[in-house]
């Protein structure tokens, strides 16, 4: 049986190979200033916020929900973090931890807000999270006073711009969050609970799963992921921009999840697929910048690649197109019917 990840992986490799065609040194990784640099490292580093948001989004989508508020949560978290250290001087690490506490606090709060609306009050996810998508940006602008806030406190920039063991620090944050998510969903029963709630919340409840708490939990996790992503974004440029930070991240994250093969109908999900999906999006962006595509057609190029990825993933489409080249054999059983 061919893995579901085969096509996304192929596309990722293809995008990276296209780069090699334009720039021979694309895969080169060298040690500069004591840490590894190169386009591949850049993709991981730049893609960190998207990876985080997409991991959270995967679990939400697995429960047949969606979290549109993540972009705004990123902006709020960045603004809260920057505000916490705005008056800090050099030296002590206390402001840094205050900032982290602020970020975690505000993202947990956002997650609880979304989770309660969906699980306890029963508002449809797309509507419930839309509230925060709109209001969150307003709150972020309130925090930053509508201006771009610049941070002069050096330790703050470590989270999104620092290095550990020659690699960008954000890489380790993503790895840790991914490991936690993977452990929780694959080594404990939580993953199964999420899938079952996504497939049929009523049946899950009747079989003894606390659907409401599972729902609440995934929204909190998604909020937390978005908050950390927002902190990385803000820390990376040492500023907070309530207007533009995390803008349209919710769409990129949903796209990453879908490219990775998780169905919007809920149920089965694939964290590995999501990681590949997010990497495809980021590689594509980096590719567009480095091979010099005219800015006017950036989005069209992006759309075409996404279209191709989605078409290739459809078993129906593959059969129609590739079927022409194969000799007709007696009909076999249909492949690739998902659980949902």
């Amino acid at each position: 049986m061919k893995s579901k990840l085969f096509w996304p992986l192929m596309i990722l490799v293809l995008i990276l190979l296209i780069n090699l065609f334009f720039d021979r040194s694309f895969f080169a990784i060298e040690v500069k200033n004591g840490y590894l640099t190169g386009s591949l490292v850049d993709i991981l580093n730049r893609g960190a916020p998207l990876l985080l948001v997409a991991i959270g989004m995967t679990l939400v989508i697995a429960t047949k929900g969606v979290d549109l508020g993540v972009g705004s949560v990123m902006a709020m978290a960045g603004a809260a973090g920057a505000m916490a250290v705005s008056g800090a001087s050099e030296g002590g690490l206390v402001p840094l931890f205050t900032a982290i506490a602020f970020v975690i606090g505000i993202s947990l709060l956002s997650g609880v807000w979304n989770g309660v609306l969906v699980s306890r009050i029963g508002v449809q996810p797309i509507v419930a999270t839309l509230i925060l998508m709109v209001a969150g940006r307003g709150i972020a602008q309130l925090i930053t006073d509508g201006q771009i806030m610049t941070v002069y406190y050096e330790p703050y920039t470590f989270i999104g711009g620092g290095h550990l063991a020659m690699l960008p620090f954000s890489f380790f944050i993503v790895a840790a969050v991914l490991a936690i998510a993977a452990f929780m969903t694959r080594k404990t029963a939580v993953g199964l609970f999420i899938e079952s709630v996504g497939t049929n919340p009523e049946a899950s409840r009747l079989s003894g799963i606390n659907s409401k708490n599972i729902l609440l939990m995934v929204y909190i996790f998604s909020g937390l992921c978005a908050g950390i992503g927002g902190l990385i974004l803000s820390s990376n440029v040492a500023s907070a921009d309530g207007n533009n930070a995390g803008l349209w991240y919710e769409l990129d994250a949903i796209l990453a999840v879908v490219i990775g093969g998780t169905s919007l109908n809920g149920g089965r999900f694939s964290l590995r697929g999501t990681v590949i999906g997010a990497l495809i999006i980021q590689s594509l962006t980096t590719t567009i910048y480095s091979i010099g595509i005219a800015p006017e057609i950036n989005l069209v190029v992006k759309a075409i690649v996404v279209l191709i990825v989605c078409l290739l993933q459809s078993a129906e489409f593959r059969k129609k197109v590739f079927g022409i080249f194969t000799i007709k054999r007696p009909e076999k059983k249909k492949e690739g019917v998902s659980l949902s």
């Binding site: 720039d23 386009s39 850049d42 730049r46 440029v237 500023s239 533009n244 910048y289 480095s290 010099g292």
Partner: peptide
């Protein structure tokens, strides 16, 4: 030699410049 949009924002400006420097 290269021209790309950075959307008038700091974050995009940094990201695009990073790609320019690599290429």
């Amino acid at each position: 030699i290269k021209s790309q949009t950075g959307d008038f924002t700091r974050a995009k400006g940094k990201e695009v410049m990073e790609a320019f420097l690599k290429s």
